[in-house]
Each structure stands twice: as C-alpha cells, then as structure tokens.
Amino acid sequence: MVLITDAEELGLHGADIFVNKHPWAKNVGLVLNFEARGSGGPSIMLVETNKGNANLIKGFTEANPDYPLGNSLFYSIYKMLPNDTDLTRFREDANIDGFNFAFVDDHFDYHTALDTYSRLDRNTLEHQGSYLMALLNYFSEANLSALKSIDDLVYFNVPLFKMITYPFSWILPLFILAVLVYVLLVAYGFKKRRIELKPVLRGFAAFFSAFIVSVLIGLFGWKLLLALYPQYGEILHGFTYNGHTYIAAFVCVAVAICCLVYNKVYKPKMGQV
C-alpha cells in the first residue's frame, strides 16, 4: 500500500484520519515512512516502536540495504524533541511500528519556495530508494505479526560492516569492562613511568580550556553575526543560505584555538619527539 498524507505540519491530520477512519488501516502491519527536512544529505533511519526494537532491527539488517545510516542514539535524541512524524499516529493510535527515513541537509530550502524537485539532491533520492526496495522486498515476505518484541538492540552503522547490533543488556557489562581496561592501562602506565600525573593534568586543562573558549566564541560569534545581519532573524527555519560556510569557519576557528592552546601547554623536552 502506498499512502500519501497531507496536513502533517498542522497536526498530522492526514495520517490521523487514515489511521482512525479508513478501513484499510487495519490491514497495515508495518510502516515505511519517508520524510524530508531539507533537500539533500544522507537519509537517516529511525526505528519507531511502542516496545522493543529487536525484531525490527534484525529485519532491517537482514534486508541488507546498500548504505544503511542510523544508530540508537538518533532515536533517543528524536524522542526528546517536540517533533512528530506521520508514523507517530500509526504507532500511538494503532500500535503499528515502523521505520522513519529522513534527510536533513540543505535545511535552508525547507518550507520555502526553493523546496522544489529541481533542487532535490539525486543522491539523496537514490538513498531513500535503496531503503525502500531492500525493505519492501524483505518485509513483503516476512510475518509482520511477529515484529513485536520486548527486547531492544543497540545498533549503529560502520563502513564495510554496515549495521552492528548487540543487546541492551550488554551495555552495563561493556561499560564496566571499558572502565576496567582504562584503569588497568593507566595504572600500568604509571607503574612503568610512561605516564606522569602533571602532564596528564595539563592535558585535561588544555582540552577543557580549548573546548570552553571554542564554545564561547561560537555562541557570541553567532550573536555578533545576527547583530551585523539582522535579516537572518527573519529566516523561519533558522538556517542561513550560507550556513555551511559559517559552520566551516567556526570549525576552523575551533581547530586553531585547540592547536594554539596545546602549543602553549605542551612543551616537548629537548630531543623528545
């Protein structure tokens, strides 16, 4: 079934009417929801479910899309935001799980007269299509009534390996293991006199100094730009048309600050490389 809904921005009305009024809604077992918040960039996968995501993520992995992009953190952040998609109505009103696929780059086109087909990045469109065909082929043969699960998986994409997953129950043991390995390595370094306390503290001081200065320059630098160009305040979506240039400039400033601070703090001994 292909469903095109409207009035999303006004309150998900199109999806709401379909889910709660249309007789076909009861035949839906899984939703593949394709979204856009810009006109380019990679498409990010966000699984949306009322319970555990284990079976959905296993199915996504077995469907094996060519260029998967997504991780558990994205959805955790998404749940904290006030944003909803049409898939929200399916999940909340009909207990139907699904996947969101959304691209968010070139945000300056979003909800403007420039948000046109001609400005849509063809690579982005192809990325959306790669998800659609892979998942459509897989889930059309799957038992959609068996997608519910009480278990959650941590998932993230890695180049060459595509999606890596492991159970949520592994999080605490892996965290403890990582802390233990770190402590043992530090202790070994002190024992062998390869690590000294004073240089370590200087390193932390340098890092936090560079971080704080960079954040302050970013915050007040942007306020200065808004004062110099008050018309930026009229851009409803908040992203200027030369926003990527500003991002690159602030990144360069942050890198320069980091290099300057570490150059002042870290002084190699004579003959030390």
Rank of each mutant, 00 (worst) to 15 (best):
M1L: 12
M1T: 12
L3I: 09
L3T: 03
L3Y: 02
T5S: 11
T5P: 01
D6Y: 13
D6I: 06
A7N: 03
A7S: 08
E8A: 10
L12N: 11
L12K: 02
L12Q: 06
A15R: 04
W24R: 13
A25F: 04
K26S: 13
N27P: 02
N27T: 11
L30R: 03
L30E: 00
V31Y: 03
N33W: 03
N33Q: 06
A36V: 07
G41N: 07
S43I: 09
S43L: 06
I44S: 08
M45G: 01
V47A: 12
T49P: 10
T49E: 10
G52P: 06
A54Q: 15
G59R: 01
F60N: 00
E62I: 09
E62Q: 15
A63I: 02
A63V: 04
D66H: 03
P68M: 08
P68D: 05
P68K: 06
P68R: 10
S72F: 04
L73N: 07
Y78C: 01
M80V: 00
L81A: 12
P82E: 05
D86F: 07
T88A: 12
T88E: 12
F90D: 12
F90N: 13
E92S: 05
E92V: 14
E92T: 13
D93C: 05
A94W: 08
D97A: 13
G98W: 10
F99P: 09
F99K: 10
F101A: 05
F103Q: 07
F103L: 11
F108V: 00
T112H: 03
A113F: 02
Y117N: 04
L120W: 02
D121V: 02
D121S: 09
N123Q: 11
L125C: 04
S130A: 12
A134M: 04
Y138P: 04
F139E: 04
F139S: 05
F139N: 05
S140I: 03
S140H: 09
E141T: 12
A142Q: 13
L144W: 05
A146S: 14
L147D: 04
K148L: 01
I150T: 15
D151P: 03
L153D: 02
N157L: 00
V158P: 00
V158T: 12
L160H: 04
F161A: 14
T165E: 08
Y166Q: 11
P167R: 13
W170G: 00
W170E: 13
W170L: 09
F175E: 01
L177S: 13
L177C: 14
V179S: 01
L180T: 14
V181N: 01
V183T: 13
A187T: 07
F190G: 05
K192N: 13
V200A: 15
V200P: 00
V200S: 14
F204Y: 15
A205W: 03
A210I: 06
F211I: 00
S214G: 10
S214Q: 07
L216D: 03
I217R: 06
G218L: 09
G218Q: 07
F220M: 10
W222A: 05
W222V: 11
K223F: 05
L224E: 02
L225G: 07
Y229T: 14
Q231K: 12
H237V: 10
F239V: 15
Y246W: 15
F250T: 05
A254E: 04
V255A: 14
C259A: 09
V261L: 03
Y266Q: 04
K269I: 01
M270H: 07
